[in-house]
């Protein structure tokens, strides 16, 4: 289980790095799907199978298909890839890399060193909590989804 965790973590990091240096949008989307599936495997190795399945279905399935449809509608051609190459070749990477590195170092220098003893928390426990103390949060999430649906329809229609 622990080797599964490390392999999936390495795959997730490499795929995420490849996402942000791609030129073609569709290739970046495929790498993003790979990264999300690797994180789903990480969730599985951490003893959260319900969340792992949701990550694969909702993130890597539904949200990425939404991205793919919009990329198809935009129909970015060869010219935009040339433009991306020009944008990527600039020295604009230096300062953002430095800032991200400072954030990374700041967080990493204060990490706790504890060993997790992994125990499986499945759909049953999550659902009991979800419809017990967290039922108001579920209602608020439904409000948020409805607001997102209505505003996305309204914005994309005009």
């Amino acid at each position: 289980m622990i080797s599964l965790f490390y392999v999936a973590a390495i795959v997730a990091v490499i795929a995420s790095m490849l996402v942000i240096i791609q030129v073609n949008v569709v290739h970046a989307l495929i790498y993003l799907v790979l990264s999300l599936l690797a994180i789903a495997v990480v969730f599985f190795s951490l003893g959260a199978p319900f969340v792992a399945v949701l990550e694969a279905i909702v993130y890597a399935g539904a949200i990425m298909v939404l991205f793919l449809f919009v990329v198809m509608m935009l129909n970015l051609g060869h010219a935009s890839r040339q433009q991306e190459r020009v944008w990527l070749a600039t020295s604009g990477w230096l300062l953002p890399s430095l800032l991200a590195g400072v954030l990374f170092w700041g967080v990493v220098s204060s990490l706790p060193s504890i060993d997790l003893s992994v125990s499986v928390i499945g759909a049953r426990e999550v659902s009991i909590r979800l419809f017990g103390p967290y039922v108001l949060a579920v209602e608020l999430a439904s409000f948020l989804l409805l607001a997102g649906l209505v505003s996305a329809y309204h914005i994309a229609k005009r």
Partner: peptide, 30 residues
């Protein structure tokens, strides 16, 4: 046993990569 700091390190690396992408890319889809 999985060390907690390895998982948190993974989350931090991914967050830093995402932040780098947000600051660097000019294509709004990226």
């Amino acid at each position: 046993e999985i060390p907690l700091e390895a998982g948190l390190l993974l989350a931090t690396i991914l967050f830093a990569i995402g932040l780098l992408g947000v600051m660097t890319r000019r294509n709004i889809v990226f």
